[in-house]
Amino acid sequence: MAAALEISGLTRRFGGVTALAGVDLSLLPGEVLGLIGPNGSGKTSLFNVLSGHYAPDAGAVRLDGRDIAGWAPRRIARAGVTRSFQNLRLLKRLSLYENLRAATHSAASGRELFWQSRAAKRRERSQLMDLLALFGLEDKADDAPGALTLVEMRQLEIARLLAARPRLVLLDEPAAGMTPAETARISRIIAEHVLPGRSVIVIEHKMPLITALCRRIAVLQAGVKIADGPARAVLDDPLVRQSYFGSRPC
């Protein structure tokens, strides 16, 4: 099967620091990859380059065969790549509903800037409300996200992600700041709603989430991929254990 995502030799420097030093990585359609590594190992930098936030200094990123390396973020988003953020990026002055709707604007026509027919508005609302209902947030559709709990905020972000109808999803620490119980909940939600039919890369430090979602794991260290393979094998690899967990067994 042709790879959904094929990264080769991806390199990015910030001043004197090399955040990514020739990373190779490929992802099959529908595959879920866990990306782990110590802080500062380049995981988020990889997402930032994949989503177009920063341009790579060298290397290629093929999405369904097209090289998207260096594209502007909006073009990459339109090509079907959507990401979440470690420190949630929600629009705190807009309602939950408008937060979701943000993901649908880029597909709209110019005329819709000024006018949406009643039918189109109703159709859009019912679709997005269904999405909110999936997470039990439909009653709060008109509230601002400030009043939500952390798990609800993550759910809203995941709902926004789904509203964009992505082919490739990049999740950056979806369980950041969560208790074990909350982590288990968000992990179930991702498994149920995000994974089916999509290629996904998850960055996470919380191993229960990674082991629950991913059959394959890749490890970054200092901008270099040091391991990539079936989850169990990677986690048992002595090199990985040493770099990531210290000498402590997991």
């Binding site: 910030f14 001043g15 177009g52 936030h53 920063y54 341009a55 502007a72 973020p73 909006r74």
Partner: peptide, 13 residues
């Protein structure tokens, strides 16, 4: 110069 990375992100909008 440390504003460089931020500025780059802005430019790419």
């Amino acid at each position: 110069t440390e504003a460089g990375a931020r500025a780059e992100a802005e430019r790419r909008l």
